[in-house]
Every structure is written in structure tokens, then in C-alpha cells.
């Protein structure tokens, strides 16, 4: 017996229906799983935001997420809660962070270009040394570094937080960029050489515009690390007028009087905003950069 055209159509319709059912079921399971994961990840943030609106006595005394009364004035009171306004601390943080981002992106890309593209004596050894610095824990260098900056008279200034960023001290970002630069075809450099570019011009006009994803990654991470860095400012900044936001937040936790948790959480929420904004703005460069490939 041979199959008729109707038999084929009926079989195809049945297969289509089964596939659609299976796809719907798997989509529901996936969405449920991912939504649960998201909730677990984001819960601390929700807790933080809700706590910023609670009265102090409810924050640790009550398990409910919902505030018994919305204390919106935690925000203005927190802003001016210390005898210096948080405007100053945000300004200080912005100053240190922006310079750190610029310093890191410029100096790390310079160093990476040299390692990835230029021929010079001792390149392999220098590269190995640089990679070794990745393996030294920060706490090991903390004290010698402090003594160094103390002797230089830089303690209680922003210089220890900024100057190293301009000297490509973050080996991880140098490494990240080296890997990125290496996968750019050398033909481009050579075409640019014939087109009359110096090594610096090749770096500036060819390598950098093609490496936006790596640069954006370095910028985002540097921003986050520096903005929320607590230890560095704690060690090097002693004058409260120079404090960065994380350091100032710590001042809400009084050791001898009542801690203002509601106000601290309110300012904590505000302190996260720049990171989110910066990320949203710069992550599009990562995507755009990746879309820029397609050389052949």
C-alpha cells in the first residue's frame, strides 16, 4: 500500500503539533528555573532597598520585607546625616573613579599593545614577570606599598589610589587586552604601515577602535572595583573631607551610639546607582564591538 498525499499531510501536522507542545513545555520549565535563579540573585538588593525605607527598629526586628511605614526621609536625612553632605563623598568617589578608569584604560592598552605587537628585548621575561604579579595576593604587598607611599609623602592624598592606575599596574587588564589585540589580524597593522602609520598611529587609529569590547570591559570592571573599594581609601585617606562613599557609609555604624541603619541603607542604594548607570552605558560597546568583527 502506498501513502497518499493526505497521509503525508496528516503525519506532518501531527509531528508539528507534538513539537509545538514539547517546545511550550520546555519553555515554561526554563522560564521558571531562570526566574527563580534571578530572584535568588536579586533578593539582597530588594532587601536593601526595602530596608532603606523601614524605620530603624523594623530592619532587624521584623522578617517582613514590606516596611510597616515608608520612611522616605531616610534618604534626605542620610544624605546630610554626617556633618559633611554626601555630595562631597560622591564627588570624591567620582574623582578617584573616573581618573582610575582613564588611567587603567590608557596605560593597560599601551602596555598590551607593546606586548602584543612590538618587538623588543626582554619581552618574554617582562611578560612572565607581569603575569607573576597576578599571583601575588593584594594583602602581601599592602604593607610594603603603604610604606612606599608613606615615604613618598602621598598618604592622605588620592595619589596612591590613582597614580598606579596610570602605570598599568592592573596586570589582569593588560593580559585581557593582550589576548584581544593578538586576535586582530596582523595584516591590518601591515596595511596601515604601508599606508604611512607609525606604531603609535596604528595603536590609535586601528587597534583601539577595534578593541572597544576589551576597553569597555576594563572600564566597567575598573569602575566597579574603584567605586566600591573600601580597603584602599581606608588605608590611605585619613581626613573625612577626602572620604569616598564606601568609607563614609561606614561612619553610619557608630560604635558608641545608635547606628543609623535606615539612613545607611538609603545611601547604599544611592551609591549603587552610578555603577548601574555606568554599566548600562558601557556594555553596549561590548556588544557593538563584537558585532564589528567580520573581516573576511
Amino acid at each position: 500500500m502506498t501513502l497518499t498525499a493526505e497521509d503525508h499531510q496528516a503525519a506532518a501536522a501531527a509531528i508539528r503539533a507534538t513539537r509545538a507542545r514539547r517546545a511550550r513545555r520546555s519553555a515554561i520549565i526554563k522560564h521558571f528555573f531562570l526566574a527563580s535563579c534571578t530572584l535568588i540573585m536579586i533578593y539582597p538588593l530588594i532587601w536593601l532597598f526595602m530596608s532603606s525605607l523601614k524605620p530603624d527598629n523594623q530592619i532587624f526586628g521584623d522578617l517582613s520585607l514590606w516596611p510597616s511605614a515608608f520612611q522616605w526621609n531616610n534618604y534626605p536625612e542620610g544624605w546630610n546625616g554626617l556633618y559633611i553632605s554626601f555630595g562631597t563623598f560622591f564627588k570624591n568617589s567620582a574623582f578617584v573613579t573616573i581618573l582610575a578608569v582613564i588611567g587603567n584604560v590608557v596605560s593597560c592598552s599601551f602596555a598590551a599593545y607593546a606586548f602584543a605587537r612590538l618587538e623588543f628585548k626582554g619581552r618574554t621575561i617582562l611578560f612572565a614577570l607581569m603575569m607573576m604579579t597576578l599571583m601575588i595576593p593584594y594583602h602581601v604587598v599592602l604593607i610594603p606599598q603603604y610604606l612606599l607611599f608613606l615615604q613618598a609623602g602621598w598618604v592622605n592624598t588620592y595619589l596612591p589610589l590613582i597614580v598606579p592606575k596610570f602605570l598599568a599596574a592592573d596586570a589582569f587588564f593588560v593580559f585581557l587586552m593582550i589576548q584581544f589585540f593578538r586576535q586582530l589580524p596582523r595584516d591590518l597593522d601591515e596595511a596601515a604601515m604601508i599606508d604611512g602609520c607609525s606604531p603609535f598611529k596604528i595603536y590609535w587609529a586601528i587597534i583601539i577602535p577595534l578593541s572597544l569590547p576589551a576597553l569597555a570591559t576594563a572600564a566597567i570592571f575598573t569602575f566597579i572595583y574603584t567605586w566600591e573599594d573600601f580597603l584602599g581609601p581606608l588605608i590611605y585617606l585619613t581626613d573625612i573631607h577626602d572620604y569616598t562613599v564606601p568609607l563614609a557609609l561606614r561612619s553610619f555604624l557608630a560604635q558608641d551610639s545608635v547606628s543609623q541603619y535606615g539612613q545607611m541603607f538609603a545611601i547604599s542604594v544611592l551609591s549603587i546607582l552610578p555603577i548601574i548607570l555606568f554599566f548600562v552605558f558601557f556594555q553596549k560597546f561590548i556588544i557593538r564591538g563584537i558585532a564589528m568583527s567580520g573581516l573576511k
Binding site: D187, L188, E190, A191, M292, S293, G294, L295
Partner: peptide
Amino acid sequence: FQSYALYP
């Protein structure tokens, strides 16, 4: 060049 080496 073989790969054209156009600046992308």
C-alpha cells in the same frame, strides 16, 4: 593583501 586587510 590576500585577506584584503580593509579596516573594519
